[in-house]
Lab assay of single mutants.
Amino acid sequence: ELREAFRLYDKEGNGYISTDVMREILAELDETLSSEDLDAMIDEIDADGSGTVDFEEFMGVMT
């Protein structure tokens, strides 16, 4: 189920989504998050600083 959700956002099928897209997902899930909260969450999610979120990083957030 998580893989299907990931595929919805990984429109190009390249195995990752951008941190911008991940930020939008988080904002949709919790509309009360401030910009600073979102920045901090993205920094934590994208631990390797690649600017992308792969499936493993995505799973870590969603579980």
Rank of each mutant, 00 (worst) to 15 (best):
E1V: 12
E1A: 14
E1D: 15
E1I: 13
E1M: 13
E1R: 14
L2V: 05
L2C: 15
L2E: 04
L2G: 03
L2P: 04
L2Y: 12
L2W: 15
L2S: 03
R3D: 09
R3T: 08
R3A: 12
R3C: 15
R3L: 14
E4F: 07
E4Y: 07
E4N: 07
E4L: 08
E4M: 07
A5S: 07
A5C: 15
A5N: 05
A5V: 15
A5E: 06
A5H: 10
A5K: 15
F6C: 10
F6S: 02
F6P: 02
F6K: 02
R7Y: 09
R7Q: 12
R7E: 10
R7I: 12
R7D: 11
L8W: 11
L8I: 11
L8R: 15
L8P: 04
L8A: 14
L8S: 12
Y9A: 08
Y9C: 12
Y9F: 09
Y9G: 02
Y9Q: 04
Y9V: 04
D10Q: 02
D10A: 04
K11P: 11
K11H: 10
K11F: 10
K11D: 05
K11M: 10
E12Q: 08
E12N: 08
E12R: 04
G13A: 05
G13E: 05
G13D: 07
G13V: 04
N14R: 13
N14D: 06
N14G: 04
N14M: 10
G15D: 03
G15Y: 03
G15T: 02
G15R: 02
G15M: 03
G15W: 04
G15P: 02
Y16F: 11
Y16T: 05
Y16C: 03
I17E: 00
I17Y: 01
I17H: 00
S18C: 06
S18P: 08
S18Q: 05
S18Y: 06
S18V: 04
T19M: 11
T19F: 14
T19L: 14
T19H: 05
T19E: 01
T19I: 14
T19R: 11
T19N: 10
D20K: 15
D20T: 14
D20C: 11
D20W: 12
D20N: 13
D20R: 14
V21A: 14
M22N: 00
M22F: 09
M22I: 08
M22K: 00
M22R: 00
R23F: 01
R23I: 02
R23Y: 03
R23S: 01
R23Q: 01
E24H: 13
E24T: 14
E24N: 14
E24Y: 14
E24D: 10
I25C: 04
I25S: 00
L26D: 00
L26W: 04
L26Y: 02
L26H: 00
L26V: 03
L26C: 02
A27K: 14
A27F: 10
A27D: 02
E28R: 15
E28V: 10
E28Q: 14
E28K: 15
E28P: 01
L29Q: 07
L29Y: 11
L29E: 03
L29K: 08
L29A: 08
D30W: 14
D30C: 12
D30I: 11
D30S: 07
D30F: 14
D30M: 12
E31S: 14
E31H: 14
E31M: 12
E31V: 12
E31G: 14
E31P: 15
T32I: 04
T32W: 09
T32S: 12
L33F: 06
L33G: 01
L33W: 11
L33I: 06
L33M: 07
L33Q: 03
S34E: 05
S34H: 04
S34W: 04
S34Y: 03
S34V: 05
S34T: 13
S34Q: 06
S35V: 10
S35F: 07
S35I: 10
S35R: 12
S35P: 13
S35T: 11
S35Q: 13
S35H: 10
S35G: 10
E36W: 11
E36D: 11
E36R: 11
E36L: 09
E36S: 11
E36F: 11
D37Q: 13
D37R: 11
D37E: 13
D37I: 09
D37C: 12
D37V: 09
L38V: 08
L38D: 01
L38Q: 02
L38N: 00
L38H: 01
L38W: 03
L38S: 01
L38I: 12
L38Y: 01
D39T: 06
D39N: 09
D39Y: 05
A40H: 14
A40E: 08
A40Y: 09
A40Q: 10
A40C: 11
M41R: 08
M41K: 08
M41N: 00
M41L: 13
M41Y: 09
M41H: 03
I42Y: 01
I42E: 01
I42Q: 01
I42G: 01
D43C: 13
D43K: 14
D43M: 15
D43F: 13
D43W: 14
D43G: 11
E44K: 13
E44P: 03
E44Q: 13
E44L: 14
I45T: 04
I45Y: 05
I45R: 02
I45E: 00
I45F: 06
I45L: 10
I45K: 01
D46P: 02
D46R: 04
D46I: 04
D46V: 05
A47S: 10
A47M: 09
A47E: 08
A47L: 10
A47Q: 12
A47Y: 09
D48V: 06
D48E: 08
D48F: 07
D48G: 07
G49K: 12
G49V: 04
S50T: 11
S50N: 09
S50I: 05
G51W: 03
G51Q: 05
G51A: 04
T52K: 09
V53C: 04
V53L: 08
V53F: 05
V53N: 00
V53M: 03
D54L: 07
D54W: 10
D54A: 10
D54N: 14
D54V: 06
F55S: 02
F55Q: 03
F55E: 06
F55K: 01
E56R: 10
E56F: 12
E56T: 10
E56H: 11
E57G: 15
E57L: 11
E57Y: 08
E57V: 14
E57S: 15
F58H: 00
F58T: 01
F58I: 02
F58C: 03
F58R: 00
F58V: 02
M59Y: 13
M59E: 07
M59S: 10
G60R: 15
G60F: 15
V61Y: 15
V61T: 06
V61R: 05
V61S: 06
M62F: 12
M62W: 11
T63V: 11
T63F: 09
T63L: 14
T63A: 12
